[in-house]
């Protein structure tokens, strides 16, 4: 992108715009117009400051950092108190998700809980590298065989299997970090 390659810009935009939009939207109480403005401003800053990105954090994390500042600046400018914190932003509220281990063994009865889990899964996927998230969705949401996943990702079957393994590990780490709880991954189920 720094070299001015159009393909690099396209890839960057396609990869990060939707994820950033989804990151911003709940933090702005689902105001789509405002979300569009904030994401636009964030990406404009990012493409201008790209050379300062030093890969100490994932690029998406870096973008979210810029985004958070834009959101804070917006609230400050409009004299609005930024009190809307998502559960993953406040360590104390992670305790409310402690019953998540039940989810793996029973259907959650509460629609609110189900919605919250759904959102956290989507957040975790958005924070994964794009190919990890795509591979997991193809495997577990679309039930595609590994051979088909390999074709779509332009990989060999073994490479696709390896990608899926890494993707699951990354998902586990990300989801556990987000919820602050070990989900009981790896324990033998009944």
């Amino acid at each position: 992108m720094l070299a001015g390659e159009e393909l690099a810009f396209d890839e960057f935009f396609e990869d990060y715009f939707p994820r950033l939009y989804r990151f911003v939207l709940p933090r702005l109480r689902h105001d789509h117009d405002l979300a569009e403005d904030i994401v636009q401003e964030t990406l404009c800053i990012a493409v201008t400051k790209m050379k300062t990105y030093r890969a100490e954090a994932a690029l998406f994390t870096w973008l979210c950092t810029i985004c958070r500042r834009q959101i804070s600046a917006y609230f400050k400018k409009h004299s609005r108190e930024d009190t809307f914190a998502l559960p993953e932003d406040v360590p104390e509220t992670r305790a409310s998700l402690e019953s998540l281990s039940r989810i793996l063994s029973e259907e959650p009865e509460s629609q609110i809980l189900r919605d919250e889990i759904s959102r956290l899964v989507q957040v975790t996927l958005d924070f994964l590298p794009r190919w990890y998230a795509s591979a997991l969705e193809m495997k577990y949401l679309k039930d595609l065989p590994v051979k088909e996943i390999a074709l779509r990702l332009n990989l060999g079957p073994k490479a696709a299997e390896s990608l899926l393994t890494r993707a699951r590990q990354a998902f586990r780490e990300g989801f556990t970090s987000l919820t602050g709880k070990d989900m009981g991954f790896g324990r033998s189920g009944r």
């Binding site: 939707p18 989804r22 989810i103 793996l104 959650p108 189900r114 889990i117 759904s118 959102r119 899964v121 989507q122 996927l125 958005d126 997991l136 969705e137 495997k139 577990y140 949401l141 699951r168 998902f171 586990r172 989801f175 989900m183 009981g184 991954f185 790896g186 324990r187 033998s188 189920g189």
Partner: peptide, 18 residues
């Protein structure tokens, strides 16, 4: 077990909105 857990979580979630 881990794969089953992840599969279950992903299926519980809705697809990410476009």
């Amino acid at each position: 077990a881990e794969e089953q857990a992840i599969a279950r979580l992903l299926r519980l979630a809705r697809p990410r909105p476009a």
